[in-house]
Amino acid sequence: MGAAAARGAGAVALVLPDGEAESARGASALAYARSLPTARALARAGREEGLVAHVLRYRGRGWNGTDARLASDASWAVSEVVRRYGDVPVCLVGLGMGGRAALRAAGHTAVNSVLAMAPWLPEDDVAATPEPVKQLGGRHVLIVHGTNDARTDPELSYRLAERAKKANRDTCRFEVHSDGHALRQHRSEVQALAADFVLGSLFGHAYARPVADALAAPPPLGLRMPLAAGFGRSLRSERD
Rank of each mutant, 00 (worst) to 15 (best):
R224E: 11
E48I: 08
P37E: 10
R173N: 13
A41L: 05
A182C: 00
M225V: 15
K166L: 13
Y58V: 01
F197H: 03
E175K: 09
H54S: 04
A101S: 04
A161E: 01
W76Y: 11
A105T: 10
V176K: 08
V190D: 04
A110F: 01
T129L: 09
L36N: 05
R139L: 03
G204M: 11
A53P: 04
A105E: 07
Q191E: 15
R233D: 11
E131F: 15
W120D: 07
V55W: 06
G137V: 12
Y158S: 13
L235C: 00
G8T: 03
R224T: 15
P226T: 07
V126G: 02
G62E: 03
S28I: 10
K134D: 14
R100F: 01
S79Y: 00
V141Q: 06
A167W: 08
V15R: 12
A192I: 09
L199M: 12
G94C: 12
A106V: 12
D149K: 03
Y158K: 05
R233Y: 08
L223A: 04
P132A: 08
G86Y: 00
C172D: 06
R187W: 13
R104F: 12
R184N: 02
E123S: 06
G204W: 05
L223H: 08
N148T: 07
L92H: 01
S75L: 15
S79D: 15
G137C: 04
S234L: 14
G96P: 05
A127M: 09
A161T: 08
R100Q: 10
V90H: 06
A127G: 08
L42N: 05
A102T: 12
E20P: 03
V111C: 03
A74N: 14
R169L: 00
G94A: 07
E80H: 06
L223F: 04
R104Q: 14
L42K: 11
D240T: 09
H54V: 01
D87C: 06
A101R: 13
P210N: 07
P220W: 04
P210A: 09
A74Q: 02
Y207G: 02
L36V: 15
G230F: 05
L199V: 12
F203K: 10
A3K: 13
L221A: 14
T66D: 14
T38S: 08
D149V: 02
Y32L: 14
F231E: 13
R34N: 15
A116C: 10
G86K: 03
H108N: 09
G99H: 04
G222Q: 06
A161V: 13
G204E: 11
R57M: 01
T171P: 00
V144P: 10
G60K: 10
E80C: 04
T129M: 11
R224M: 11
R84C: 14
G137N: 04
P132N: 09
G46D: 06
D196A: 04
N112Y: 02
A116I: 01
W63G: 02
G26S: 02
T66L: 15
E155N: 10
